[in-house]
Design a protein around this nucleic acid. Structure first.
Lengths: 267, 267
DNA sequence: TGTTGACTCTCCCCTTAGGGGAGGTCTTAC
DNA sequence: GTAAGACCTCCCCTAAGGGGAGAGTCAACA
């Protein structure tokens, strides 16, 4: 006969656990002193304790273990084992899906962080044609968020790049602007209210703007000066690419937003 | 402004959950009527609620989410994401190990069940030589369990078959038997107290016995009669193979035990 | 204006598998 | 005899809500 402390060392279960198993009727001490309440365990119970620990390791619940120990029936045992297996398999599946989502999230955030490295100089580059889905809006710029939200819901995983805004006005307008929220997509699909088409290739003058949107005026001025200096002609619509903005998940800090101004030009 | 019920439908979170998030300070209603305590939610909170639901899906804890929503810091965000990822990866690893253990357990049990299909007729067969580890004991048969336990601990995953007992007595002895507990192994290894050697090939008369060990006398009688009828000569040691006995984990039901008696013979 | 049914409130207990600790009792060694 | 260490019971705590009781509130309809 072993006291609970000795038995704890022999079985590898803590004293608390042993008391708990007693209370649960899972591992009842061979003898309990009626006067003092002291628990005394039998030598044969070491094996039982090991079995219980083993089954706990296999993620069986206490009540499952009680059932397992209670029955000597083969078929029922196999059944319980397989149920447990498939349950755990489900958990694994779910966690793996979670990991995939996290990975995507992480890579998006990483890319956002990498954006901060890009230089802020005016440059000229050739844009390739790309397939986009767009929703055209006339009104305030603050309305564009809804457009992106609708596009996002409609095209989901077909999206293959950063969202962009096309400006059809030749000058800045505050409350009656004509613009189009666009998302690059990898495959055509018809969604109500959205126009899917190829955005043509273009030579453009570009500048990366870092910081909140309300400070983009200076950046625009820089680009337009460049264009004027070289006597280029602006081709509408102009583009604004949101390399890093308020994400799906987190609003982020506006001073870390990164936007590329792309002004298509001729001549 | 939406009542909690409306907001629950809009956000997909239960009313209980919303109240809980309020209590936790995670999603505080835009307005709480001081007179009635009614919660009213803002339109913008739908997005927050969705974000929270999304993060809960990624297995973030409430306090993690509070932290995530509280900070707009990129680096901290990435850090939290990666910590979460590696934590979940750990969980997956553990569960997969669990599944492997369960699989082994299941296959053992299945094999045991398959044993029940074997016929119970005396037969003659040729046994191949096999490598075994054995511990020889003189004494009571009830001592053999300890021998198997020691062998099991010593050889672990090298074991490649059912345990067997070799009987060196030419007749049955109760309290001073000479026998050896053996386990077939797939590779030599020296373990204190155990002898590793090749058990020779042999022609033998065999019979599968189903049921508890104390009823093996009848089965032995059947085999010995067969041998006597044919004038064979018994070659010691005889063997008893425990196709299904009290397993590592479960004692099982003795009436389902399956044992093969193998008596090597000459002539 | 009254009623009624649906909605909401707070408060309390419950879930798993034990962990932590307080306060009191028991055993055991010196 | 005494003191240390072992053991006891009892109570509270975990995470993320779920279930329900009893009471108050809102909105529609007569």
């Amino acid at each position: 006969m072993f006291s609970i402390g000795e038995f704890s060392k022999l079985s590898g279960l803590t004293v608390k656990t042993l008391r708990f198993y007693h209370e649960e009727g899972l591992l009842v001490p061979a003898f309990v002193d009626p006067g003092t309440g002291y628990r005394y365990y039998d030598e044969r119970q070491i094996e039982t304790a090991r079995v219980i620990a083993y089954l706990r390791n296999l993620e069986f619940s206490i009540s499952d273990i009680k059932e397992l120990l209670g029955q000597a029936d083969e078929a029922g045992l196999l059944d319980l084992l397989e149920r447990q297996r498939s349950q755990i398999k489900e958990q694994v599946k779910h966690l793996q899906k979670t990991i995939r989502s996290l990975d995507q999230f992480i890579s998006e955030e990483r890319q956002g962080l990498a954006m901060a490295e890009i230089s802020e100089n005016v440059s000229e580059k050739n844009l390739d044609a790309m397939l986009v889905a767009g929703i055209r809006v006339k009104g305030r710029y603050s309305e564009c968020g809804k457009g992106f939200a609708r596009l996002g819901r409609g095209f989901g995983r077909l999206i293959c790049g950063s969202p962009l805004l096309l400006h059809y006005d030749s000058e800045y307008r505050d409350d009656d602007a004509d613009f189009e929220a666009c998302l690059p997509i990898r495959q055509r699909k018809s969604v109500e209210g959205a126009s899917v088409r190829e955005l043509p290739a273009a030579r453009c003058v570009a500048l990366v703007h870092k910081g909140p949107y309300d400070q983009m005026g200076r950046s625009y001025a820089k680009v337009l000066k460049w264009i004027k200096d070289r006597n280029y002609k602006v081709v509408l619509p102009t583009r604004e690419v949101y390399l890093k903005g308020p994400g799906m998940i987190f609003r982020g800090n506006p001073k870390n937003y990164v936007t590329e101004i792309q002004i298509p030009v001729e001549g």
